[in-house]
Design a protein around this nucleic acid. Structure first.
Ligand code: MN
Ligand code: MN
Ligand code: MN
Ligand code: MN
Lengths: 218, 218
DNA sequence: CTAATTATTTAGATTAACCTAACAATTTTA
DNA sequence: TAAAATTGTTAGGTTAATCTAAATAATTAG
């Protein structure tokens, strides 16, 4: 049985090796920074995870998940996203509140619980942030979506997910009346700083490039 | 914030100081045995819990919960029983499966989660084992119920809870068609070993004294 | 292609939660 | 009430997960 901490390392590695289409490895510092620990700490854990055959790793080399490591990580991601969906759909949590609690709930060990929860929620495909939920077989629909910042001026698109999961960002998105499935029309763009003028359900708003880079669209 | 382990010690102390009406203290060995650790380990933790003002304790003396310690312990008990109820009522778990998972879920930290869960479940008063669920104010209806072994021969009673929460016992109870609210008629009793002949919804069964001592009735 | 910079590992500590073995206090029993 | 039994504590370790400081490898830049 994996410890809470080991699970977090695997989850972090899954995240870091899926950041963009061709990224399949991570570095020690990158991992340590992501987890909020010192590189020396990460090195110790990497040795242990290698020992347990959960990762591929050689001293001074890059890190990637093994097949079993990836399986484990996806299980945790599945639990995380199912719990977020539960909190959002059944317990009236807002989308900026669910992540923190799911960080704890994802470590509950009980295969029966996960599958019953999935059933109870009606086998949802995406979580409250628009992220795809791995199914019971451990299959994850991974699609690398375009961001709002890449949309051509004058065209329309639909928001399908968010990239940033911090409460601050999510609350701001909500305040702008943006949510999953909202149609966005790009009216204009400032060459100077990349900020964009948008039309959302009748009202015009202005957003920064940084903001637009965290809205995923289709 | 209390650790997982500290929470388990407090919960154990709450249990041990509520075993019967006049029991308000526990001993080091008793506590250690209940938690499955060595007495030396318990002594260490007792010092820490005393330091944090969660218990009353003097070297070589008896242990009892402080007001804050009791509050904390009841919060955990509340979570435990609400989660058991959730698993049983919403996720189709059987009553012998819920405890193990609730042992993990009870340590999730989120005041909002507990209260939303309570609301979602319709503010249940008892868990699947008939145990009273503390309310949001931390009030616990504690009633010391009679056991089936104390019922007079020839009279009837109603099962309201079970004392033993092990899967083996609960499965056996189910197999005998006994559940919360079942009416039990005591037909006869063996002087020799205290075993009892019961009438349950039309069929006669024989149970041991040990068994009868773990069925709570009214 | 060396020197500077960056990335990573090693060495040596710390803390929480556990253990065993030995010792000390308390309670029971004869 | 003294010996025996029980209960509880202390001393000294271990392991997992963390840290800081120092050393080393790899990469980048001039
Ligand atoms: Mn999340
Ligand atoms: Mn999410
Ligand atoms: Mn239980
Ligand atoms: Mn229960």
């Amino acid at each position: 049985m994996l410890s809470f901490t080991e699970e977090n390392y695997l989850k972090a590695l899954l995240h870091l090796t899926m950041e963009f289409e061709d990224k399949v490895e991570a570095g020690t510092n990158e991992l340590a920074f992501y987890l909020g620990v010192k590189p020396a700490t990460a090195t110790d854990m990497l040795k242990k995870l290698k020992e347990k055959k959960l990762i591929q790793y050689e001293k001074y080399g890059k890190i990637s998940l093994s097949e079993t490591g990836r399986k484990k990580a996806i299980e945790i991601l599945r639990k995380h996203r199912l719990w977020e969906t539960f909190l959002y759909e059944k317990l009236e949590f807002t989308w900026d509140e669910v992540h923190e609690v799911a960080e704890q709930l994802e470590h509950i060990h009980s295969p029966k619980l996960v599958d019953k929860l999935d059933k109870f929620l009606g086998y949802p495909e995406v979580d409250p942030h628009g992220d795809s939920i791995p199914n019971a077989k451990g299959e994850l629909k991974q699609s690398f979506k375009k961001t709002l910042s890449e949309v051509e001026t004058g065209t329309s698109c639909k928001m399908v997910a968010v990239k940033d999961n911090t409460a601050a960002f999510l609350q701001y998105v909500s305040k702008l009346n943006l949510r999953i499935d909202t149609t966005i029309q790009v009216l204009s763009r400032q060459d100077y700083d990349g900020s964009m003028e948008l039309l959302i359900s009748g009202s015009k708003i202005m957003v920064s490039q940084k903001f637009a880079e965290n809205i995923l669209i289709v």
